[in-house]
């Protein structure tokens, strides 16, 4: 699946199978929110982002309208991925059970924190929000973060 963001004129590519895998994880945790980290790499000209994998948090709390995750214990995993495959942390994903894929204020605040965090060297992390119900994925929306804003890919 190839998505385009007009605002920044960039592309995002993710294969269907990976998206389905992530969705299934979200559905399995229904009716609570669930999520994790997105792994990927940029093209040489930095115009395309390939989402290649995900990492699940080792500890998290999920309720019907909140998802709190910790990055504790994942550091070595990230560094291994980088050494072996040149893949890096590129963003976050979480579900909205029975909700829309619209981001909340809390989501935006989290992304502002992430971009300004010293361990993060990318300026445009992505956020994937999955609207899920008990048995299925309703919709998935990718957002690109830029300058305290989240802008959806088409």
């Amino acid at each position: 699946m190839k998505l385009h963001n007009k605002h920044r004129n960039v592309e995002l590519i993710i294969n269907q199978e990976l998206l389905e895998k992530i969705s299934q994880l979200g559905i399995d945790h229904y009716p609570n929110e669930f999520g994790g980290f997105l792994i990927g790499k940029y093209s040489d000209d930095y115009n395309t982002l390939f989402i290649t994998d995900y990492i699940l948090p080792k500890s998290y709390k999920g309720s019907r309208s909140l998802f709190e995750r910790s990055a504790k214990g994942t550091k070595s995993l990230f560094s291994k991925l980088f050494k072996i495959k040149k893949e890096i942390y590129v963003g976050e994903w979480h579900t909205h059970p029975n909700g829309s894929t619209r981001y909340s204020d809390i989501d935006l605040r989290a992304m502002i924190n992430i971009e300004s965090s010293p361990s993060v060297n990318i300026k445009n992390p992505v956020l994937l929000i999955l609207s899920v119900s008990e048995k299925k994925l309703n919709q998935a929306t990718f957002y690109i973060y830029e300058n305290k804003k989240l802008i959806p890919y088409e």
Binding site: F67, S70, K72, E92, I106, D107, A110, I114, S119, V120
Partner: peptide, 13 residues
């Protein structure tokens, strides 16, 4: 470098 690791704790709604 683009290499990044996520900040420790984040909350999403």
């Amino acid at each position: 470098t683009a290499y990044s690791t996520p900040p420790k704790n984040e909350r999403f709604g």
